[in-house]
């Protein structure tokens, strides 16, 4: 890989890793809430989480711009109080990637939480475990396969993020130009067939590695457990 290509890969990985790590606890929390008892507004939360899956990504990007832009309500507040800006920044690309990956992560995790036998939690409670301890020692470890699957699936999805990113964070070399944006940019210039092909191959290899790693993680964490939620369960 050339220095420029390496730079693009490094940025893409940084954006995706940060997006997924920050989203992980939120996704698991949402999955846990959605897998639990019904509450007023659950349908709405469920729909909101899944919206990025069905909306045109450019619309998601535009909504992010409204909310997290420098003049948006959330964006203005975060810029002022936390010093985090999103527009034209790699953090914006990470935010877009996170929002697009969230539904996939929540789905996989929710399935695996629902697959945990509630009766085991009851057994733990009669043995003296508080709600929290029963969660930490029973529900959480038994849903690890889903956490692993959801994380890698979300990671693969965020590596491929294009529409929301280019709308919200723009296409700035070295800052928000991740692999898919770099491929798109190269396609706009005549005589770059080789460059496009190289970037595409890098992209394919990265995605394959993520999928294989995910399958491996799921199998590993399902060892010794009665039932594991597989990637295919999605």
């Amino acid at each position: 890989m050339s220095g420029a290509e390496w730079e693009i890969v490094r940025l893409s990985l940084k954006v995706s890793v940060v997006a997924i790590l920050v989203t992980l606890p939120l996704a698991y929390g949402l999955a846990w809430v959605l897998a639990g008892r019904a509450f007023p507004g659950r349908v709405l939360v469920d729909a909101l989480v899944h919206l990025p899956l069905v909306l045109p990504p450019v619309v998601t990007g535009w909504l992010l711009l409204l909310l997290f832009g420098n003049n948006g309500p959330v964006g203005a507040w975060m810029g002022e109080n936390l010093g985090i800006g999103f527009v034209f920044r790699w953090t914006g690309a990470a935010l877009a990637a996170a929002i697009m990956a969230l539904p996939l992560m929540v789905r996989a995790m929710r399935l695996s939480i629902e697959a945990v036998d509630r009766r085991l939690v009851g057994a733990a409670r009669t043995l003296g475990a508080s709600r929290w301890r029963a969660f930490a020692t029973i529900t959480l470890p038994l849903s690890l396969p889903g956490i692993a699957a959801g994380t890698m699936l979300g990671f693969a999805r965020s590596l491929g993020e294009f529409g929301a990113t280019i709308t919200f964070a723009s296409n700035i070399p070295g800052e928000t130009r991740t692999l898919p944006l770099a491929i798109y940019s190269a396609l706009q210039v005549p005589g770059t067939d080789v460059a496009v092909a190289r970037l595409a191959i890098i992209s394919i290899v990265l995605s394959l590695v993520a999928l294989v790693l995910s399958e491996w993680l799921v199998r590993r964490s399902a060892l010794g457990q009665a039932e594991g939620t597989r990637l295919h369960a999605f």
């Binding site: 036998d117 009851g122 057994a123 009669t126 003296g128 475990a129 470890p141 038994l142 010794g224």
Partner: peptide, 20 residues
């Protein structure tokens, strides 16, 4: 009393051993 405070030694018909 919550289940964790009762001191029940509950042997379930389906045992419910923790599989992990």
């Amino acid at each position: 009393l919550g289940p964790e405070m009762r001191g029940a030694g509950y042997v379930f018909q389906d045992a419910r051993l923790f599989p992990h």
